[in-house]
């Protein structure tokens, strides 16, 4: 009960501050929309598919996963600003749940991600993408788990390194191979065997496959539950670790 109450207190404050400055939503949506408009038209010939709709079925899920990974990984910057302002220390001297300090923030990140995902999905509908609503909701659950995990990791790392100068290169270094090895931009079906072998070890590649299956309307595919399960386990692990960092004594 206390955890729920504390989490909602932190979440409400974070949402309030986020909505006070809604420019984030345009910034967050701008890049994906550019991909949608300027990159996606190349896909129909490149992927050798018959229609735009088919190309979007492959591309849009990847784009959304990309957004979830990157959006989450860079949330730590806001936390460093809060550390510097003394807000975190002020919270840590109160009896508030340490897990709530993390969850309140990560859930805000999930909500803002889903808001962006909805806008992008709506735009893709204009380009003839069609997706069955229950499948879409499951895909959003996948995105929520990804963003919960990546934002928790980002917060945990931010609490350890405590400086933007260290966080930025660290997150970029992690994100780039993760991105390339997940078949986000082009499906790895085109990849040579060795590359696929490595990609199988990348959990995000499973998430992308699962999300694509959902957009394809293939709810029964093993990719779906495997992707969801892997993301759920990793999200729990990331949250547990980052919450411990919130509880730990810091100088």
């Amino acid at each position: 009960m206390k955890l729920l109450r504390d989490t909602s207190l932190i979440f409400n404050r974070q949402m309030q501050l986020l909505l006070r400055n809604p420019v984030w939503i345009f910034v967050g949506v701008f890049q994906p929309v550019m991909y949608l408009l300027l990159f996606a038209p190349l896909l129909k010939p490149a992927l050798q598919v018959n229609s735009n709709a088919e190309a979007y079925e492959i591309f849009v899920p990847g784009l959304l996963v990309l957004l979830a990974i990157f959006g989450g990984l860079f949330q730590g910057f806001g936390l460093i600003a809060e550390l510097r302002a003394g807000v975190i220390e002020r919270s840590r001297v109160t009896p508030v749940s340490r897990l709530a300090l993390l969850l309140g923030r990560s859930l805000r990140d999930v909500v803002s991600l889903i808001a962006q995902a909805v806008i992008i999905t709506l735009l893709a509908l204009v380009f003839d993408l069609r997706v069955f609503l229950p499948n879409l909701l499951l895909a959003y659950l996948m995105l929520a788990l990804i963003s919960l995990m990546t934002s928790a990791v980002s917060y945990g790392v931010a609490l350890v390194v405590k400086s933007e100068d260290a966080l930025a290169p660290l997150m970029n270094t992690v994100a780039q191979p993760v991105l390339l090895l997940s078949g986000i931009l082009l499906p790895l079906t085109f990849a040579p065997g060795w590359l696929q072998g490595i990609a199988d070890w990348n959990p995000f590649s499973w998430a992308v496959n699962g999300t694509r299956a959902l957009f394809r309307g293939d709810l029964g595919s093993a990719d779906v539950w495997q992707g969801l399960l892997i993301m759920a386990v990793l999200a729990v692990a990331a949250v547990a670790w980052a919450a411990r960092e919130f509880a730990r004594s810091v100088r």
Partner: peptide
């Protein structure tokens, strides 16, 4: 923690919040 208050040297307010919001939240965290 329940019985003490602590005021750090470097301050503890968030630029975009108001004093009232900060105070209400702080009380609720207790």
């Amino acid at each position: 923690r329940r019985r003490i208050g602590y005021v750090a040297q470097g301050g503890s307010t968030w630029d975009d919040s108001t004093a009232r919001e900060e105070l209400v939240l702080q009380a609720r965290l207790y």
